[in-house]
Structure formats: C-alpha cells, structure tokens
Design a protein around this nucleic acid. Sequence first.
DNA 1: CTGAAAGCGCTTACAG
DNA 2: CTGAAAGCGCTTACAG
Lengths: 358, 358
Amino acid sequence: MSHNENGFKMRQNEKTSKITIDIVAQKSGFSRATVSRVLNRDPSVKPATAQKILRVVEDLGYTPHSMASALSGGKTKTLAILLPDLLHEYYTQLLAGADTTAEEHGYTLLLKTRNTRKVFQELVEGGRVDAFILRYAGPASFDEDLLKYLRNRRIPYIVIGTPPFLDTHPAVMIDNIGGARLMAQHYGVHGYKRILFITGPDHSNDSKDRLYGFKIGLSEKGVDPERIVVEEGDFSQRSGYEVAKRCLLQDQFDAVFAANDSMALGVIQFCQDRGIRVPEDLAVTGFDDTFFAGHLQPPLTTIRQPMYEIGVVAVLNLLRVMEKGEQVESRVILPTKLIVRRSCGCNGEPMELSNPTT
Amino acid sequence: MSHNENGFKMRQNEKTSKITIDIVAQKSGFSRATVSRVLNRDPSVKPATAQKILRVVEDLGYTPHSMASALSGGKTKTLAILLPDLLHEYYTQLLAGADTTAEEHGYTLLLKTRNTRKVFQELVEGGRVDAFILRYAGPASFDEDLLKYLRNRRIPYIVIGTPPFLDTHPAVMIDNIGGARLMAQHYGVHGYKRILFITGPDHSNDSKDRLYGFKIGLSEKGVDPERIVVEEGDFSQRSGYEVAKRCLLQDQFDAVFAANDSMALGVIQFCQDRGIRVPEDLAVTGFDDTFFAGHLQPPLTTIRQPMYEIGVVAVLNLLRVMEKGEQVESRVILPTKLIVRRSCGCNGEPMELSNPTT
DNA sequence: CTGAAAGCGCTTACAG
DNA sequence: CTGAAAGCGCTTACAG
C-alpha cells in the first residue's frame, strides 16, 4: 500500500473502511494502547516500537479521529475566539494574527461572533474547545460571571482589551494612555487649544483611557485639560459625522481628536461636505491606524495599535496558560505609537513617534 | 434546582459532576434513548413525553456533549471554511457573511487559512466538520483531487470563485464578465482608446473573465480589443505600482483598468508620486469596491461585487446540499455593478449601473 | 411510542 | 515497556 503523489485517490479506491487505531495496531503487531501512546508522544514507549508504529501510520495515512480522542480525555486542539463582529478591520486583523499563530502551533480556531450565553455554554459543555480567546467589547459581549465560570471549570482563557472588571484576568491590552498622551503632546507643538474629543461608547474603557491619557498630555503642555470639549460617539463613522455636525457649526475649534479612525473619517467627511478645510481650518486625528488612514485626503495622523500582533500575543499567552496551568502571570500591554501624517497640520514626510518607555 | 438570572454560578456550586444525558434520563423517568430522540427532534416521540423531558433539560441546563454525539453518528454542526488569508477585505467580508449565516442556522465555522493537504485531511478524517466551504484561489490552495475526494466520501462542500476545473462542482461565483463589460462600455462613453489592463496572477480565472468581459464591452463600443495593453499583476497593491512604473512612463495611455482595487490603488499611488493627475491625465479604475475605494483621492470608479453576500449564499446553498443530498443543482452567479465615482473622469454625483440581465 | 444494548474510536489507569 | 479492559457521552438499529 504505497503512497504516490496522489494519496487521496488511493484511499478512495479502498473505499472499504475508515482507518482506525485498531487497524494500525493490528498491522503493526502492537496493541491499541501502545499505538495511542506513540501518537501522543508518551515517552515510556520504546523508541524502536514507536518507529515501527509510526511507519505503519505513515503507510496507511492514518489520521486519528479527533472527536473520539477528545471524548476519551484528549484535547480538541481547538480554541474558541469570540469577537463582536468581523466588519471592522480591528477585529479581522486580530483574527488574522490569532489564526496564523494558532495554526503554527497545531490549533484550529472556532469563530463565534454571537456571544450569547447560550453560545458560550454550548462551547463549554459541548466540550468543543480547549480554551477561549475573548475580545471584550462592552457589557453586551460578556460579563464577569462568564469569566468566573471559566475559571471555576479550569478552562483556560485570555481576554483582549480593557474590561471594567476589578478582578484580574489573563489579558492582552494596549497602551491607550501612552498613545493618547503622545497625541496631546503633538497637539502641544501645533499650539492647539480649542479641542474637541470624541469618545467611544460609554462603556468602553479603551476610550476612557484614551481620554485620560490625552488630558495628561495636555496638561504637560500647559493646556488646561478641563477646557476641552468631550462628546460621545460610538466608534462608528456615522457617529463621528453626527458629532461633527452637532459641534463644529456651533463652536470654533482648532482640532478634533477622535477615539478611533472611523469617527475621524466621519468628521473629515463632514468637513468635506461643508467646505471646512482639513487641516487648514481644522486638524483631525484618530486612533488605530487602520488601512484607510494613510489613504485619506489628507492622510490621517493617528495612533497606531498593533492589531495583528494583539492576536498573535493573545494565542501565545493563552498557550502558556494552557501548559503551565492557571496561575501564570499573563497580562501584557502592547505599545502604541504616534503616526504623524498630514491631517494634524504637519506637511512633511510621514513620521512615527513612540513613547520612550511604557 | 431553579434557574435564576445567573445560571452559571449555580452550576459552579454543584460542581460535582457534568450533567449527562443519563442524568436527564433518570430525572425524567425515561430512558437515555428517548431523551436522545427528543433532543434530535425524532417525531416518533409522544409529544407529552417530549414536553416532560424538555422541561428537565431546561431545569438542569443540560447541553449535550457535541464530541460524543458526533462520535456516535450525529453531526458536528460545524462547517470548515478554507480561505487563502484574512488580510484582504474580500476574504473578511466573505467570512463575515458566512459566519453570520452559519450562526443563524445553528452552525459554527472552523476557520483554516493554511490549506495544505494535511490540514484538509485532518479535518475530514478527524471527523471535525460536516461540510466544507472552499474559496478557490489558485493552484496552491487546493486541487481537483481534493474535491473528488470529498465527493467520494459524500462530504458536502461548496466552492467560492471560478475554479479552472472542467468538472462541475457546487459553487458560488460572480458575474466577472458582465461587470468588466460594463466598465468597458463606460470607457466607451469617455472615449478612451489607449488602455492598459492589469491582470491578476496567471492562474486566476476571475481575472481572465474580467479581461474577457472587458474586451467584449470594448468591441461593442467599436474599440479594437486587441489594441489594449495587458500586463500581469498579482492582485497586490505593490504589483499595481510596479506595473504602472513599468508601463506608464513608456507609453501614453488614456486609462488603466486594474483587475482589482488594490492594484488600482497602487497605480494611483504611482501617479501621485510622479505628478500624474488622476483622472485628468489618466483615468484609473478597479474591481471589487472595497471599503477604501470610496475614500481614495479621487474616489475610485470600480465594479462592486457583493463580498458579504457571497458568504451568505455559500452557506445557504451548502446547507441545501447537506439536506437534500449530493445532487442538488447548486451553482449560482451573483451580479456585479459599476460604481461610477471620479477616478474614471466623471465628476458628478456617484452613480451605479447594473447589467440589465445577467 | 419506548427501552436495552451495542458501538462510535479513542485514552488511561491498572497490571504485569 | 506493553496489553486488556473500562469508560468517555452519545446515537441508532432492533425488539417489543
């Protein structure tokens, strides 16, 4: 039963039966238990034995049935990733990073974008996954009970983003404060004083941190942080547009800093519609550095967060937690940097600014 | 054992044992078999019985172990989706559509972006999924043997895109020819004659169809399709830039039509770098209508394909195939439309043009 | 309409 | 270092 280039067709012709561990056992002359052991790299098996068995596995093109091994105590080798949606670049980059890293380590991702309690429960009770990656995005996405539940059941997990929980959980976050502070300092060099800040939705801690960091940077530059105007958006392009419409026509501003790029885009669109020149009449900046930021007119000055890398780090740390058991210290904060383009009023070459230490 | 708002905590306290079908059987006074039947909506069960059992299921918060049911002949309720990557908007939109639709129907997606034969085999032999969604993207992503293999094993699948296979497989495609033809006709109204067409990679049938449709439209407008210049790209922004550099400095063109938006973007960037005005000196158009297309300067005229909907239709049709067995006629072609913005030389309001019938 | 029993394909103590 | 056996939690003929 040799193997040619076309391993598939051969099997089709046999067609007879699914190849099971028992067949491997029989052909190799060892027991099912021993075959299982070599498949799971049990070091107690004599190397020569392992050799022989592996050879048969190879010849037969045997692949263990993952459902069976999961049921009998093995692992599923799959990770659940819970995301609010896939429509924003932030989430897809995250997913791409997580997926690539998971595959590199032999894991598969199970994607869920409807994070109801029921979905969650089915994943856990159904024994479908070994661990969870949870992107926190507001109260609706999941609550602390869910995390406690996972913890009690000893199911490894990691959360992405800044949840408003008092308790600490394994998490990967970004330096929102440092990034926004950089922006404030840059506003300082431009001398902007009359500033509009557009927040994300009320529950977003990421947004809160950005505002906080921005205020810190402002006072460092001698601007009274309490004098800026703060308006609430919801991270959507539309909300940026709406806030702009509501505020820009009333008061006179030097600059607006939106808590993400989408809202900054909304602001810029409003300006275009009303003939407000950016950045001559008004500077506009964002947060994220999504793909379109660099292609806007004018190109958007923004804070870059490493979206893809967040996904990578999340699975890497989750894997560590899975290996070493629950009590691995696993909170990481990834750096952000200021990407200076033209919407802030600069007009030279694009440049990047990082925090000295964060 | 009533259920309060916090179903999770309660279970934590019991902590004792996982709730299995046997526990449900015992508490309800029926056999395991009967419980299984009601869970699987077997119509032979007496309604009153089903009622009682369901009540117990509810009270206990019982969730079947999916690995166990999969192993014993049930379904996994999961669909594998194989994508070349997640970096391009095309794929993520596709994924978003597929994911939403799958969840609506009680399915979960298993995502794979490394489509090696090994990965494929593990999914099939490992019994991890009920069916496959395959995005065809060139020879490396998968070959016809794989499809035959699935077919022989009676594993439902659907392919997305236009594969170069002679044999027919369930598939969802888009009207590449019709879309490109629309573009050609629009070029006709602008009177463009000296035209550069940038293709995708050699193996891309989507690209070939776009070129084909474009030529048809051209001749309909009295332009000799053999006089246009055709250059090969690979769908990347960089390749668009490179082709532009190679060609635009040599010959004089009225317009370039790139087989996707990314390459069009590359061309526009090159023009910016060299001070070539778009569309005054050169019209540039693309294909896809990705998010950034409308935000480019000038906004990109392009052909819109319904990326999200492709994902939706793919799982819907796959579900039909799964229900009705293999021989469901299931090939669909989704329409495309011309989105006129400004990069083609128009300067009015944006507008859309569809094929009368496709 | 319902139940007892076999079986899905593995893993893992328990012996030796 | 290896094997026989029990068991994971379900589904599905087979009887009745």
